[in-house]
Design a protein around this nucleic acid. Structure first.
Lengths: 341, 341
DNA sequence: TTGTAAGCGTTATCAG
DNA sequence: CTGATAACGCTTACAA
């Protein structure tokens, strides 16, 4: 019987099992460094008392937490859900726990979250994209916390990354769209400031425009926060121009779904009257009708690889070279030839 | 200049400011209990060194973590996203940090997660639904951890809850459907074992059936994990019966969207040929076409109130009476009268 | 194989 | 208002 109403500690277990606290600790962390008989006695005591190790004490003593922190821009839509899930699963395999927070796309909140996670003893950090105030990297370097970036691969960035080439991916899609005969292009992008994914996707479209002998006047870009309704709103703006586009490339599937919706509300058929594409290939893209032609991002693979890299960095103080994954265009029904073609 | 490459501690700050660690600690936690001049000196030292308090040490010393844990069944779909977001925001207002993990609807994983959160020093816990192994409640009681249940309000349950009456909500919807003339009803439910929300929603439908002088033969229920594709599959099964239903009530919007999709693939018009309803009113319900007639759950309000209750429980060791919120039917386009009516 | 004991970085009590 | 100092619960050399 334990002291009633009080939480059992290592000491209680040690007493009950008639061993030292060191032995109990070993039983829990290096079971093989203790002989079978004692181990049995200890484990019996452990669950007789309902003992659970105190995490804070463990972290303090061991100076590592077996915890990885991740800060994603948002949990609201599913963009990061699948990748993070895979990241988590792989970490779990390696004995790590994932702590997630979201920054609502706000740099200062992200900054705060980073400090919080570090204070909580995160052994490593996963961040989304490269763009952020450099002093953050200084801070993390001083603390010697391994950091990996995901969702954007930039081989020569300061921080190693596991992700894909946002610019090339969007270039490929834009090129395809132009190849279909579209000449007046609209783009609904996420806010590009402090968001390299958004920025690079815009650049990808620009690349395609110029490589196809078109001019900036063939392209109209609207930036707006990732949200279905914003996508709809941007669509209205784009279509109310003198020469409305015949194809609209969206920075992600969420914006695209909003655009499609609004098109339909306006009585426009997709893709007969207007083509719309997404980016990410989240479930929404499949659900939407018409199904969204979009860029497939290997979310699960990215999450898994990121976990592998980060664990390696944490455990072996290794410097990761990062990893570039491939995206591919998924053709569904929201993209077609322009009406006049 | 701090010792290079080493993380500054309270002690370093104290030294630099020429005060004791106790004073530094006070500056950070009870700024008003220290005189202006010293405070300035201390704060200057703090950011000269880039000091961040060590969370583990703080938790150990203070014996509270200002952390609330929440375990949700899944992050995959958006069912819990909005409510949790509001929960988090409200907690933040009160100086608490939220730690979330998901159990994938598996009781043993949930059990493990609970222990993990407790070990991490969570001051309070939010769980979804009442159904779980009683020994978990014993464990939490021994540890004296305040626990609140959300997404299901049951006034006389062992644990206080902030949520809605799943049974009554579904009863109301089913009643409405029957009132429209439907006599052969199908239901695609989530797995009800260990899930009171799913179970009670089924009961709600049964209540409506019997109160309208119909018999169990008028109702066919299929249970399947929450997933779009499962919804589609269940739809096929339901429709291949001798007397297929004219209306299908789904345990949530995700299943409903799957069912609608499959209906359309089979060439059936919704709601002309078959009516389908959802539950939750997540964004998906609005996006789907036709828009889903569903039960609106006040997710944000629920999250906010849950935070308020839980903080109260944690800080004042108060026993909460819980709170019942109202749901309401949202009529969109997926429900109509039966064809033969 | 097991025990002893020195930290780990804070907070909080109690004097001064 | 400020300073010593004793916890907090665990891990990990180092000894035995």
């Amino acid at each position: 019987m334990s002291k009633l109403g009080s939480v059992p500690t290592l000491d209680d277990v040690a007493k009950m099992a008639g061993v030292s606290t060191a032995t109990v600790s070993r039983c829990l962390n290096n079971p093989d460094r203790v002989v079978e008989a004692t181990r049995q006695r200890v484990l019996t005591a452990v669950d007789a008392l309902g003992y659970t190790p105190n995490f804070a004490a463990r972290v303090m003593a061991a100076k590592r937490s077996s915890t990885i922190g991740a800060i994603i821009p948002t949990m609201e839509n599913a963009i990061f859900a699948r990748g993070l899930q895979a990241f988590q699963e792989e970490l779990h395999q390696h004995g790590y726990t994932l702590l997630v927070s979201s920054s609502a796309y706000k740099p200062d909140i992200e900054d705060e979250q980073i400090r919080t996670l570090v204070a909580r003893g995160a052994d490593g950090l996963l961040l989304i994209g490269h763009d952020r105030d450099p002093h953050i990297y200084d801070y993390l370097e001083q603390r010697k916390i391994p950091v990996l970036v995901a969702w954007s691969f930039q081989p020569d960035a300061q921080i190693p990354s596991v992700g894909f080439d946002n610019r090339a991916a969007m270039f490929e899609l834009a090129n395809h769209v132009i190849g279909l005969g579209h000449r007046q292009i609209g783009m609904i992008s996420g806010v590009s400031a402090g968001n390299d994914r958004a920025y690079l996707r815009i650049e990808g479209v620009r690349d395609a425009i110029s490589q196809n002998d078109m001019t900036p006047s063939n392209l109209t870009i609207i930036e707006t926060p990732y949200d279905i309704d914003n996508g709809a709103e941007a669509f209205t703006q784009l279509m109310s121009q003198e020469t409305p586009p015949t194809a609209i490339l969206c920075g992600n599937d969420v914006l695209a779904v909003g655009a499609v919706r609004r098109a339909q509300e306006m009585g426009l058929k997709v893709p007969e009257d207007i083509s719309i594409t997404g980016f990410d290939d989240i479930e929404l893209a499949r659900i939407a009708s018409p199904g969204l032609t979009t860029v497939h991002v290997p979310h699960r693979e990215m999450g898994r690889q990121a976990a592998l890299e980060l664990v390696e960095m944490v455990e072996n103080k290794a410097i990761s070279a990062g990893l570039r994954l491939d995206t591919k265009i998924v053709e569904r029904q929201s993209l077609g030839r322009p009406a006049h073609a």
